[in-house]
């Protein structure tokens, strides 16, 4: 249920971009999903495959979703690192919990392949 609304949003964006760029037959959609979001790639793909059946434009399209790892910057020692343990967000260099999240919090539509 949770991923249904975001999948609809992704499809809405694909439709908008295809219409703007005159793509009539998209066949591969590339998207990124941050590991720190509350969304998972499998249910998005699941809903995409259901919704595309009802969608003339996307009938033949597949979606490929790449996971983006969480990246942090420590406000104390200033070093940047990938998160080792997903929700134990401490700086691996100095152990500080005083951090900024740089990456892994977004879902992005990256590329549309088609003609």
């Amino acid at each position: 249920m949770h991923e249904l609304s975001i999948t609809k949003k992704i499809i809405e964006m694909i439709e908008k971009e295809c219409s703007k760029n005159n793509i009539k037959k998209p066949d591969k959609i590339h998207a990124e999903i941050g590991e720190l979001t509350t969304y998972k790639k499998e249910p998005i793909k699941y809903y995409f495959d259901i919704l595309k059946k009802e969608n003339h434009l996307l009938k033949k399209a597949d979606i490929d979703m790449k996971i983006i790892n969480g990246k942090i910057k420590c406000k104390d020692c200033k070093k940047e690192n990938h998160i080792k343990e997903k929700y134990l967000i401490l700086c691996p260099e100095c152990g500080s919990g005083n951090i900024d999240i740089l990456d892994g919090e977004d879902i992005r539509l990256k590329q549309i392949e088609g003609e």
């Binding site: 975001i6 949003k9 992704i10 964006m13 971009e17 760029n21 793509i23 066949d27 998207a31 979001t37 977004d106 879902i107 992005r108 539509l109 990256k110 590329q111 549309i112 392949e113 088609g114 003609e115």
Partner: peptide, 14 residues
């Protein structure tokens, strides 16, 4: 011919 259209837009941004 198939083309690759780069988008790179946030889905959560709207």
């Amino acid at each position: 011919m198939s083309e690759k259209l780069d988008i790179d837009k946030s889905v959560l941004s709207e």
